[in-house]
Design a protein around this nucleic acid. Structure first.
Lengths: 163, 163
DNA sequence: TCACTTAGTTCGGAAACGCAACGCACTTGT
DNA sequence: ACAAGTGCGTTGCGTTTCCGAACTAAGTGA
């Protein structure tokens, strides 16, 4: 086998997520989608990714329900790819990665792009908060709980394939 | 060229972050590090990753300052890998991905592992909050701002290589 | 001395990537 | 009418990376 990185017999949400968005270029495709990119040529030009790879990624993202093809022209039949709700929810992952990169890779010198929180006017420094109480969460605040009847990543994703 | 996915002439924090943690297995290595794994054999056994790949990943993570080698035995010389602050800060990325996977991949059926927020007792549903005002952030609440003098991912990471 | 541990390195083959060229179904320009 | 252009992929070939398994290296314990 070549580069497969088959996490599918793991039973882990992170591994399952990586199975969907962990391929090279995939997250950048989604990043661009958030900036309004929705067509093959746009992605190809902006990313410089190989066309066959891009085609494979789009197909995979559609299969996993992250992107949805929508016809924007019959004759010639053309469709664009728009983010589903599932896809839109990935903005948390993108922003979190942005926050880490801005802090630890670009640092003081500042990143090329920043996000400004409109309502408070500050440059976004994303924190992880508990959806229940709203408090900022640190690793030590969490307790890992393993649940019986684990299902593997492969079993979980099989549902996607079927649809 | 084979599978390189060279994002380095992009100027983007997400691309820069992917350059560090975007390789296959890398994020799972870090996930396990958060669960106390710190030695080669432990990762190899848990992940089932090829040994040469694991060696390459560990080397890369050390080079990028995410893991730090620490001697735990002279004679025979052995070192374990521990998360740096930079590495520990990646828990936000992991938890965010966990949150997305739990919601959109495992869904109602429940994931194999869950995190419980000790202080409020609820199962963690991670939200993205603004570090300044603490409000939950949605995409529409943000304004993208491009900053002059963009530095590419390659330039930014060159700093790491030197050290 | 011989097994055993730990942490890699090396080697062959398969899979995925990068690049460029091509195909196809239309539209537009002359 | 015919050539050129557009949008979206697919095909083929060469290279890189990955996987798997065997092997090395440096020591420990029996």
């Amino acid at each position: 086998m070549g580069r497969t990185a088959d996490y599918s017999n793991e039973s882990c949400t992170v591994a399952a997520t990586l199975e969907v968005i962990g391929d090279p270029w995939t997250l950048l495709v989604i990043r661009d989608a958030f900036q309004g990119v929705s067509r093959f040529e746009q992605w190809q030009e902006r990313l410089g990714v190989a066309r066959n790879v891009l085609a494979a990624r789009l197909k995979s993202l559609v299969r996993h329900g992250v992107l949805e093809p929508q016809v924007y022209s019959e004759r010639p039949l053309r469709h664009e790819y728009v983010l589903t709700r599932k896809g839109k929810d990935l903005y948390t992952v993108l922003l979190t990665m942005h926050g880490w990169g801005a802090k630890h890779l670009y640092g003081e010198s500042g990143a090329g792009v920043s996000f400004v929180h409109k309502s408070c006017g500050a440059e976004l420094d994303p924190k992880l908060a508990c959806g229940c109480c709203g408090e900022t969460v640190r690793p030590r605040d969490l307790e890992i709980r393993r649940i019986a009847g684990l299902r593997t990543v492969g079993e979980v994703l099989a549902k996607d394939e079927a649809a």
